[in-house]
């Protein structure tokens, strides 16, 4: 993945999480992965198209997702209902949008698809032919893994 893309995603993930959750956020070590990645439980996916192609996946456990949704809504949610899912979708949208805005300023142009959310146990995601950059973000409610797989169009 191009180096220029990395920072906008890391920065916007950090900024957005800190802002909406109003808590301590720390970033884990970045790494690359090409094999299929297990999904922790709740995954929001945003597709990219344009000069580049690929997708960004926001991955967290169900418990983390419920807690994050509770904080963002300002009320205690008990399960991953429609409201909780919509909240996680919105979080994904905010982070991606901010990253894409930064990239647009740098001269990279691409479009986003509306986020889709996947939930379930024992899921994996594989993106053939693209390796994924994993950005682990640690918040008090658990871990959010941002899984970015983008490539240039040849």
């Amino acid at each position: 993945m191009r180096v220029e893309y990395i920072n906008p995603f890391v920065e916007s993930a950090y900024n957005v999480l800190k802002e909406v959750l109003n808590c301590q956020v720390s970033r884990g070590e970045l790494y690359l992965k090409s094999t299929s990645t297990p999904v922790l439980g709740v995954a929001a996916l945003v597709g990219l198209a344009g000069d580049v192609e690929g997708r960004i996946l926001f991955d967290m456990s169900k418990e983390t997702a419920i807690k994050v949704a509770s904080v963002m809504n300002g009320e205690e949610l008990k399960e991953l209902d429609d409201l909780a899912k919509a909240t996680i979708t919105e979080l994904a949208n905010m982070i991606t949008a901010q990253a894409v805005t930064k990239l647009h300023d740098l001269g990279f142009k691409f479009d986003l698809t509306p986020p889709a959310i996947f939930t379930g146990d024992n899921m994996e995601v594989t993106t053939a032919e693209v390796e994924a950059l994993i950005v682990p973000m640690v918040i008090p409610y658990g871990k959010v893994e941002i899984n970015v797989a983008i490539r240039e169009r040849l």
Binding site: R2, V3, L30, S34, A128, E129, E131, E152, L154
Partner: peptide, 15 residues
């Protein structure tokens, strides 16, 4: 030049 953060042992998408 495309500078990429990439592991050469993964799939190399180059022409």
């Amino acid at each position: 030049i495309f500078f990429e953060y990439h592991d050469v042992l993964h799939v190399n998408v180059v022409p």
